[in-house]
């Protein structure tokens, strides 16, 4: 594990850059535990102070320090992204592994369901969910709704690997040694697809944070929980740009773009690492 990391850092510039960006973002979210101000509280700092030594990212029109507010926001956004990613990975793994291993009619049924979910536009459906639940809209509900829309691409990817695993000798051997289907899927096939699952997790976190930001900025989530999206929402509510409080918008947007690019670079470099041919050509050998 440690050697893989060292290899990746040395031979893969994308991985190194992505790792640095994500480390910064994680450090930022961990800083929230040392915040002098409690999360979400208003009127604790002077209004609209530009970035200075006392307030590195300035303060906003709600009387909050942008830096410390941002630490809470990025922590909540990351947690949300990870929750959605984990939930949807679970669905993708179950569907993908089962579909690939069992095959036949089961595969065809699961894949038609999969292809059905692929074409759904998530945004109108999530807006519909918000419209119905309104004030009952919670963090958990949104996470579940997004997770149930975010799995199909990766389920198909996992299935394609599982299809090839089924014909491998060790699978036949497991069947002859009396392992149940569930045991084969979890103990034998799962380890093989885990690297891909890691890579897709990064993409899925990106996807869910992006949607969360979108819904929050319009005001379609619980706007009292600080996230990157709700921060921009409040900045817009106070017309921060017109008022010249640009630091209220620039820092959250900058940080979230950093997160997106960092996660994306990690996912790309992991994908490359998984594919040995591209890894060799990068290390200077011949593919």
């Amino acid at each position: 594990m440690f050697r893989i990391l060292k290899d990746l850092l040395r031979y893969n510039r994308e991985f190194a850059l992505g790792a640095i960006l994500i480390l910064l973002v994680v450090a930022m979210s961990l800083a929230s535990f040392f915040s002098p101000y409690p999360s979400g509280l208003q009127y604790v700092a002077p209004f609209d102070v530009p970035p200075s030594w006392g307030h590195p990212f300035g303060t906003n029109s709600r009387g909050q320090d942008v830096f410390w507010e941002l630490t809470f926001a990025i922590r909540n956004s990351l947690l949300f992204g990870i929750t959605v990613a984990l939930l949807s990975r679970l669905i993708a793994l179950v569907v993908g592994l089962t579909s690939g291993y069992i095959g036949g009619v089961v595969d065809r049924i699961l894949m038609s369901i999969n292809d059905t979910f692929v074409v759904f536009p998530p945004f109108p459906i999530l807006v519909l969910v918000y419209f119905i639940f309104k004030d009952h809209m919670s963090w958990a509900l949104l996470a579940v709704a997004m997770a149930s829309l975010g799995w199909p691409y990766d389920a198909r990817l996992i299935r394609s690997v599982a299809l090839s695993l089924r014909t491998r000798e060790f699978t036949t051997q497991s069947i002859f040694s009396g392992m149940s289907t569930r045991q084969i899927l979890i103990e034998e096939h799962l380890p093989y697809v885990l690297p891909i699952v890691f890579a897709t997790t990064m993409n899925n976190i990106n996807w869910s944070i992006g949607l969360e930001v979108t819904l929050s900025v319009i005001g379609f989530t619980n706007i009292e929980t600080p996230t990157i999206g709700t921060m921009i929402y409040w900045a817009n509510q106070h017309t921060a740009l017109v008022a010249g409080v640009w630091w209220w918008i620039a820092f959250p947007v900058g940080l979230v773009i950093m997160t997106f690019i960092g996660l994306y670079l990690l996912s790309v470099s992991m994908n490359e690492y998984i594919d040995p041919r591209s890894r060799l050509s990068r290390m200077g050998g011949s593919a």
Partner: peptide, 14 residues
């Protein structure tokens, strides 16, 4: 590929 992971909303906003 650097711009691609940025979600539509954030990009449109920028």
């Amino acid at each position: 590929s650097g711009l691609q992971p940025i979600p539509n909303y954030v990009m449109a906003f920028v």
